[in-house]
């Protein structure tokens, strides 16, 4: 790789710190006078630190290797599946989403044995449902 992983992440943090300092913090933090520590003081200090260290890292990268593209694609797929299931949960509730979610995850990992599939897809969600709603009398998400 011509661009090292550290140079890439260093550049990201350099820009992130600057964006925080000049755009995000002024817009998202209120100005207060007359107290001891203004709400923006600490965020601003930390934004500068992020930016400066990002810059230093570009100049002085380590030999760290990032994983390959395949790793990122598969993890992104898992994150997307979880995100989708959270979205579905907000409509249908945990009871209806848990089992399909468990099934998809187990199949993606490559599980094919019926006994284990049954355990993960039927038994576990049922146990959680019983524990939370019946024993603890709490609501599921």
């Amino acid at each position: 790789m011509s661009v090292s992983a550290d140079r890439l992440s260093g550049a990201f943090f350099l820009i992130l710190g600057l964006a925080l300092y000049f755009a995000v913090i002024p817009a998202q933090v209120e100005q207060i006078d007359g107290r001891n520590l203004a709400p923006a003081t600490m965020p601003n200090v930390v934004a500068i630190v992020i930016s400066v260290c990002g810059g230093l890292l570009i100049l002085k990268p380590t030999t760290h290797q990032a994983p390959d593209l395949r790793f990122f694609l598969i993890s992104a797929a898992f994150v997307a599946i979880l995100g989708g299931s959270i979205y579905a949960m907000s409509f249908f509730g945990f009871e209806y989403v848990a089992s399909p979610l468990a099934l998809i995850i187990m199949l993606m990992i490559g599980e094919r044995r019926p006994v284990w599939l049954l355990t993960g897809v039927v038994l576990m969600p049922a146990a959680i449902w019983f524990l939370v709603t019946q024993l603890l009398e709490r609501a599921l998400p």
């Binding site: 468990a102 599980e111 284990w116 576990m124 939370v132 998400p141």
Partner: peptide, 20 residues
């Protein structure tokens, strides 16, 4: 137990636990 069961169950438990 197999990874598949452990991981899927752990994910469900984390969902419920964090929600509560």
């Amino acid at each position: 137990a197999p990874e598949s069961v452990i991981f899927s169950s752990a994910l469900l438990l984390c969902f419920v636990g964090v929600a509560m």
